[in-house]
Amino acid sequence: MLAASSVEMRKVNKYYGKFQALKDIDLSIPPGKVTCLIGPSGSGKSTLLRCINFLEEYDSGEVRIDGQLIGYDAPNKKMSGRRLREMRRSIGMVFQQFNLWPHMTARENVAEGLIRVRRISKADADRRASEALAKVGLADKSASHPSRLSGGQQQRVAIARAIAMEPKLMLFDEPTSALDPELVGEVLSVMRTLAGEGMTMVVVTHEMGFAAHVADQVGFMEKGELVSVASPDRILHRPEDARIQSFLRTYHERNSF
């Protein structure tokens, strides 16, 4: 079992100018559990996720990782860059667009954080990077540059890059949305393995199957509000809120033929 973090969000608000992207978000993410966030596009899912590692600065409220406030020392007093970087070391993030560094090989992508952030020697970093790549099934691609990899392989390298840092929390922002349908499975299967190992995961996704089978709780967002958080069954199969029902209806219409 890995050490796993918890996340507590309390009354989190986020504005882009006058536009309110997050409205009083309250969310508890228990350690070692998988939380999926669903909802229409533009509802604030990415913004919420990015507040957890402070890639997006929330304007009020609190985001705590294992009880520790991230981004601020006190209201309106930003945390130092050094402390923020320390906290981010144990939070992995996987993006929709992979965001691998194209000038580095797969192994170099994974080793970079170990060398620069964890200050591990190059030899050790390379060894750990190879292990992480093996874990996502890409041992044979470690010398390849991202441009030579399929989307699914690139996303698995991105996951390896995150897990090599030994995070206690993993954030996924639509990790399979940029992939051709036949490549979605390989990425979800790596994520399922991670979940099985007891990693705390927050996953923004449109993969309802994954949410139904892997999530411990599912949150539904609309217009900057976290409308409801409950078990996958409650949200996906027996939704009470009309907004969720209508979202799922649209989803099912689009995904059937």
Binding site: N53, L55, R85, E86, M87, R88, R89, I91, G92, M93, F95, N99, L100, W101, E112, G113, R116, V117, A158, R161, A162, M165
Partner: peptide, 8 residues
């Protein structure tokens, strides 16, 4: 952002 996210 990917670099920031791992704490670089």
């Amino acid at each position: 952002e990917a670099a920031r996210a791992i704490g670089m």
